[in-house]
Design a protein around this nucleic acid. Structure first.
Lengths: 215, 215
DNA sequence: AGGTCATATGACTGTTAGGTCACATGATTA
DNA sequence: TAATCATGTGACCTAACAGTCATATGACCT
């Protein structure tokens, strides 16, 4: 946690420091990121930095907190009452918020991606212990509910499916960012719908009876 | 490329250096990996190292070449005549070889994972330019063929599907390594089959007619 | 023996890093 | 005015790094 000194700072100075840190951790991994560069960019003396944060990790975790909070802002309208709606509709909303977040905040998305990337890194391990994997957990619950309601196949391996769905989140966002430039709402709607369809129906050719269902 | 001096080395010395490098790049990212530690582990003087390699990147790329070659060994029996067999059977084989490679060579798998992780890293970009993304490409071809033959849905977005399938490779291997410890052949057979089923049928509950098909 | 050439070697260079610390500043009290 | 105290500051510390280079070694040739 940042020291009280940081919290007491005038807002614009605090923002400048956070912005400099975001820029640095967007451009470099945790290890490669440099406090020297950050204090340069933020135009504060090095000594001051250590008045605000205990060390590099302290700053990094503060950023992660900011990211989690911002991502929650995107998610919360969706998750307000998750049980009131069909599994695939809810899933669609979850993915849509994820994509929207990624498009609106490519830098924060990139920092998150970097964290998720190296699962052996001590900082990743620490973060996961503190925030225990929410994503897998939520999907676990949703899938169970979905099966109970008959929206999903009853023979699914819940744990396995939860893991696949939750790790596909990144893949879809990556695909979108790499292949679709124009930032039109309908564009990512389309990407998400492709994905939901993929999840629901698989890619195997259906029998004629199945084809009927899609009409 | 390593210098000729390296190629001329007695095999055991070369092995020792390669092993030391593998250990280092397994434990640390490219940036974090240290030549000093590598020469320590390999018990060669630092000067000697630079008789063998131009720089850190040179060594790293040499390792990547080793990894690619070894992975090809696992794949080649499968890819001998990819067109002679059903899409899902072939896919099953591809994933099985991938998983087998990951289980047999957790260290090499880890180095690969680290590379794939940070797609902005100059070394990743360079590697992809030189080895242009084979994985997506192969799946692109296979999916097209699969559609032509009527094994896959005709309305698939080929590019999108290729990306999803190719990035799920990592997810499945991760899941297996995290959740299944025992190294029995049948265990990873099971993981792969779950995944193939997931791809083929999706997770949506089928109509009664569809359920019949599965019997 | 003398000469040549690939290779071996480790002290050294220049740079950067994260983090510390003695001291400076300036606002708020008494 | 004097004392206190949170905060500001940058020179400085130790450690580590990638990469260099002058010199040493020793196998092979003539």
């Amino acid at each position: 946690m940042p020291k009280p000194t940081f919290k007491n700072l005038p807002e614009d100075k605090r923002d400048k420091i956070e912005q400099a840190a975001i820029a640095e951790f967007t451009a470099y991994s945790f290890d490669q990121a440099s406090i020297n560069r950050i204090v340069d960019t933020a135009e504060i003396p090095k000594g001051s930095f250590y008045q605000y944060f205990n060390d590099k990790k302290d700053l990094y975790k503060h950023l992660l907190d900011l990211i989690v909070m911002k991502k929650m802002d995107y998610m919360s309208p969706v998750m307000a009452n998750p049980m009131s709606v069909d599994f695939f509709i809810l899933l669609r909303e979850i993915y849509l918020s994820g994509l929207r977040f990624a498009v609106d905040n490519p830098d924060l998305q990139q920092i998150g991606r970097r964290l998720l990337a190296d699962r052996n890194h001590p900082v990743f391990v620490e973060f996961m212990q503190e925030n225990l994997n929410k994503s897998d957990e939520i999907f676990h619950v949703l899938i169970s509910k979905g099966i109970e309601r008959g929206e999903l196949r009853a023979d699914l391996d819940i744990k396995f499916t939860a893991h696949i769905i939750s790790s596909l989140n990144t893949a879809v966002a990556d695909y979108y960012q790499q292949n679709i430039k124009v930032e039109i709402d309908e564009e990512y709607m389309l990407t998400v719908d492709k994905f939901i369809d993929f999840l629901r129906n698989g890619i195997g050719r259906a029998t004629d009876e199945q084809e009927d269902r899609k009409l």
